[in-house]
Structures are given as structure tokens and as C-alpha cells.
């Protein structure tokens, strides 16, 4: 990890903040809409833990790249920050989709009987470009929303620390 200790702490905190807030807010939304039980029924505990760990890892790597050259603790260009988190949010969406695809493909290949045709793989190859576009759009939108929330919280942090300097 690059940067001085406070910058490394900022990267670690922002990445975990994004992954945690996204997942907890999504669970809260799904639960109040009544769709969480059926979703959890289809999700193996180990797979669920693994998917969160994968999202955490891809979010950390993309946050690290997004914050390169940006001084969150000092002065920064807010628009450039939101543009950067939008772009790297899209990259995170695609990276997470790639992890999901690997898990799904390995699981599906293990489940289909030996000697079956390549139809499943052809379908996956056909759907992949569309899925990548959708994942980039969703990741970019989530990144932009989180970026705006970040800006508000960064301002609050400056106020908390400036009053006493």
C-alpha cells in the first residue's frame, strides 16, 4: 500500500466504509421489502462470506486507485473526487462481476453432467458483454452516490478537527 500512515488509514477506512455501508443498506432495503428471506435461502453461508470478502477486496483495490494523488485530509477538488469515485466505482462493479462470474461458472460446470454440450458456455460468453455494461453502470452510480456522501462526511471531519486546532 502506498502513501503515508494517515493516507493509508484514510484509504482503508473509506474502502471498508463503502463496502460495509453498501451491504448493510442493501440488506436493510431488501428486508423491509420482504425479499431477504428468499434471497438468503438460496445463498450458502460460506459463499455469502466469500462474496463479501471479495467485494471488500475489490473495493479496497479500486479505492486505493481512486485516491491516488487526492489529499482527502487537506484540500481537494470535489468534482474531480466524484468523477474519480464514479470511474473507479464502475471498475469495482466490473471486478465484482468477474468474481461472481467465476463462482457461478465453476459451480455450474461442476453441476452439469459430463458430456453435456457447450451451450451453457456459449450463453455465458454471449451475456458477458451486456453484464459488464450493467455492472459498470451500477458500480458507477453507487460510486457516485457514495462519493457525494463522502464529501459531506469529509466536511464534517474537517469541522470536527478544525475547531480545536
Amino acid at each position: 500500500m502506498n502513501g503515508d500512515p494517515p493516507q493509508r488509514l484514510v484509504t482503508w477506512a473509506l474502502a471498508t466504509f463503502h463496502a460495509t455501508l453498501f451491504v448493510v443498506a442493501s440488506v436493510l432495503f431488501a428486508y423491509t421489502r420482504g425479499g431477504l428471506g428468499s434471497l438468503l435461502a438460496n445463498l450458502n453461508t460460506l459463499v455469502g462470506l466469500g462474496l463479501f470478502a471479495a467485494l471488500w477486496a475489490t473495493t479496497f483495490l479500486t479505492t486505493q486507485r481512486a485516491l491516488e494523488g487526492i489529499d482527502v485530509l487537506g484540500t481537494m477538488d470535489d468534482r474531480a473526487f466524484v468523477r474519480r469515485v464514479f470511474r473507479w466505482g464502475a471498475a469495482n462493479g466490473m471486478a465484482f462481476l468477474a468474481v461472481l462470474a467465476v463462482v457461478f461458472l465453476v459451480g455450474s460446470l461442476a453441476a452439469i453432467p459430463a458430456g453435456s454440450g457447450p451451450g451453457f458456455l456459449l450463453f455465458a460468453a454471449f451475456a458477458a458483454p451486456f453484464a459488464l455494461v450493467v455492472s459498470a453502470a451500477v458500480g458507477g452510480a453507487v460510486g457516485a452516490v457514495l462519493g457525494v456522501i463522502d464529501l459531506g462526511l469529509v466536511r464534517l471531519a474537517r469541522r470536527l478537527s478544525a475547531e480545536n486546532n
Binding site: 484514510v10 455501508l21 448493510v24 443498506a25 436493510l28 485530509l73 463522502d150 469529509v154 474537517r158 480545536n164
Partner: peptide, 21 residues
């Protein structure tokens, strides 16, 4: 879950304030 969301959201400014201080 709502209190957890609040706690997570208000923990980021705490971390950033500590890093600035």
C-alpha cells in the same frame, strides 16, 4: 440495522478527524 448504518456513517468523520489531528 438503522442504528448500524448511522454508526458506520458517523464513524468515517471520526476516523478522518483523528487522521487530521
Amino acid at each position: 440495522l438503522s442504528v448500524v448504518v448511522l454508526l458506520v456513517m458517523l464513524s468515517l468523520p471520526r476516523t478522518l478527524a483523528v487522521a487530521r489531528l
